[in-house]
Nucleic acid binder design. Structure first.
Length: 648
DNA sequence: GTTAGGG
DNA sequence: CCCTAAC
């Protein structure tokens, strides 16, 4: 028989010292581990560029060419380097990149000296991230890619992080990709740069042969650099090589002034021709700031149908003139001059003004804020790119399907009119619609997925439907990150798709969704499989109002702590955005807030009387729980005694 | 699915 | 607000 005693106590009268709850001490707190693929979506833009570079290179190669495997520090033999710099910060970036280079990284210097070749001394690689190494083609490197910052660096900017907004970062119309002769290498000025562009090191995106290097950086001055060779070269394995390519990764990160360097090796078995970005720890490359939010730079306008998002600028690359007389780096580790693999002729320069995702469909309610819109678009782009994207090449408006033809065979050479070269972004093969979030019911999709798929297959358009929470707050505002809010809804008289080679593909980048009473909307990317990163999108911070706090306090006073579900049902049943975990967390912070001096408190002040009630309830229910525990123990032993003695 | 606690 | 272990 279990002895049960009723606790007869009011909400006051107990003033026991706070006694910690029975800790679940046995459980180990495993530090949050990030999925390896967390990074992939975040550098998908790099992936994209690299894929593009690889594609271009592939097409420029004749089928028999690779000779050398880049191994270890044999950078002298690199056929080329493509370096991409990406400012990333947990998917978002900040404008300034200078620090890393200010610290004496020699790689940062070469580009600032009017050389079109950025030479990265291998010695610096230990701070870099070498992802892949493959044999370098010795074919006539018909082209190279060099990205531009200012004029030399490619910046894939997902977030300008600048008050100027509209900075670099988006993907633009493939038709804007241009081929240029070596003599006319430069950007069309279509790429906008963040305010700190001038600080950007000239650690630019360059390409020679098949070797590419990707550099990304987050706002904590964390850098990752990736080297990658065209997959095409996989078939040209040096005799001494066995097995898969080895991939080395060296990541240097810095947190709070501390640097962490890691060197890893991977085996890459991938054969899909895409760059493989290998991340093992998100935090290795990105400072962890759980409150950071991201945006995508974009133009947007309100149309009759709704918001239209136009991605503008940001993804650009430029070919490199690999003239031997150039590119001798200070350290001379690998330069075009030393490489000597690149012929002086038949080189084609590409100035990729921009890439644009032809069609991106997201759904937002009218009441969504700009910040949420940005977030949504960012998710859409991330999902899009992360799902695997293919590059199509258009010449004279016709799609070039034979990847084995050389550029000249395709009719592309520096002597030809290259104005009609275009690139398209196409959805990858994996295009199963997957909900990105499930907090709320998924909307009906404006059009059936079949049609979307058809349209996507028939054109370079990509549809990605993304739900966003319907909220009245701009997370960026809440974060005090006001720079992004300088963006305005800019009326955009022209249809963003007007210049598209697919005029039929309408421009509804954003389709208004009927307002739902629920505070969150669902999204369904139509063509891309989102990655876990998207799935675990952090919710928008929604500070508790005093009213909510009061309701919470009242509920806790009534049902006690430890019954958060009841609290939720009792006082927050209609607040769909408040989960019982939220309430529990809020209570936790309330107790803490009430325990500290008013001077230490932040945010919207909570009336002292409420805080007093918090402490009172906390004390009471803590004690109550203790008594419960003690009673339970007594009861247990009593039961045991009874059972053992009852012989029943 | 809830709860507790660390991050 | 997220994540995870323990229930």
């Amino acid at each position: 028989m279990v002895v049960k005693r009723k606790l007869s106590c009011g909400s006051k009268g107990f003033d026991f010292p706070n006694i910690p709850k029975a800790p679940r001490s046995s459980r180990r707190k495993v530090s949050g581990k990030r999925a390896d693929d967390d990074y992939e979506s975040e550098i998908c833009a790099i992936d994209l560029l690299a894929s593009l570079a690889g594609k271009l290179l592939e097409e420029s190669e004749s089928s028999s060419t690779s000779t050398y495997a880049f191994e270890g520090d044999n950078l002298d033999h690199l056929g080329g380097v493509v370096k991409l710099k990406q400012e990333l910060e947990d998917g978002y970036n900040k404008p300034c990149l200078s620090k890393f280079f200010d610290q004496g990284n020699p790689a940062s210097k070469s580009t600032s000296e009017n050389t079109s070749v950025t030479c990265l001394p291998f010695s610096s690689l230990e701070n870099d991230c070498i992802l892949e190494k493959t044999p370098v083609s010795d074919c006539k490197p018909a082209c190279g890619l060099k990205s531009l910052v200012g004029e030399e660096t490619c910046v894939v900017n997902e977030d300008a992080g600048s008050g100027q907004g509209e900075a670099t970062g988006a993907l633009k119309d493939p038709s804007h990709l241009h081929l240029q002769s070596p003599e006319s290498v430069h950007l069309d000025g279509d790429v906008k740069l963040p305010p700190c562009t001038d600080q950007l090191p000239n650690d630019s995106f360059e390409g020679y042969g098949n070797h590419s290097k990707l550099v990304c950086r987050d706002d904590d001055e964390n850098y990752c650099k990736y080297y990658k060779f065209s997959d095409k070269c996989k078939s040209y394995r040096p005799p001494f090589r066995v097995g898969n390519r080895r991939i080395m990764q060296s990541v240097k990160t810095k947190y709070g002034g501390r640097s962490i360097s890691k060197l890893k090796c991977f085996e890459d078995t991938r054969t899909d021709g895409r760059l493989k970005a290998l991340y093992r720890k998100r935090k290795l490359c990105y400072g962890y700031n759980p409150w950071k939010r991201e945006t995508v730079h974009k133009k947007r306008r309100l149309s009759a149908k709704g918001l239209v998002v136009n991605y503008d600028g940001g993804l650009s690359s430029e070919s490199v003139s690999n003239s031997p007389e150039k590119g001798e780096s200070e350290n001379g580790d690998f330069s075009a001059a030393k490489i000597g693999l690149l012929s002086k002729d038949s080189r084609v320069k590409f100035s990729i003004k921009s890439l644009r995702i032809p069609e991106l469909v997201v759904e937002v309610p009218e009441t969504a804020t700009v910040g949420l819109l940005k977030r949504t678009v960012k998710e859409a782009v991330t999902a899009l790119l992360g799902g695997g994207i293919r590059i199509g090449v258009l010449v004279q408006g016709k799609k070039v399907r034979d990847d084995n033809n050389t550029l000249s065979q395709t009719g592309l050479s520096c002597r030809e009119n290259l104005g009609n070269l275009g690139f398209t972004l196409e959805p990858g093969l994996e295009t199963l619609p997957v909900p990105l979030c499930s907090e709320t019911p998924v909307f009906s999709m404006p059009t059936d997925s079949t049609k979307l798929s058809e349209r996507s297959a028939a054109s370079p358009s990509l549809d990605t439907r993304i739900p966003i929470p319907l909220q009245d707050e701009d997370p960026l505002i809440n974060l005090g990150n006001s720079v992004e809010n300088n963006h305005e809804l800019v009326p955009h008289p022209s249809d963003i798709s007007a210049a598209d080679e697919q005029p039929s593909s309408d421009s509804r980048a954003l389709v208004p969704v009927s307002a739902l009473e629920s505070e969150a909307l669902a999204l369904v990317p139509v063509n891309e499989k989102p990655k876990r990163t998207e799935l675990s999108q952090r919710r928008t911070r929604r500070p508790f109002s005093v009213t909510e706090v009061e309701a919470l306090v009242r509920a806790v006073e009534e049902v006690g702590t430890g019954r958060w579900r009841d609290v939720k049902l009792r006082s927050f049943e209609n607040a769909s955005h408040r989960t019982y975990v939220d309430l529990k967390d809020k209570w936790k912070t309330l107790v803490h807030t009430a325990s500290i001096s008013p001077q230490q408190r932040r945010g919207e002040p909570v009336p002292q009387d409420l805080l007093d009630r918090v402490l009172g309830a906390h004390r009471f229910w803590s004690q109550h729980q203790m008594k419960q525990n003690g009673k339970h123990q007594v009861a247990t032993s009593t039961t045991m005694v009874v059972e053992s003695g009852s012989s029943v």
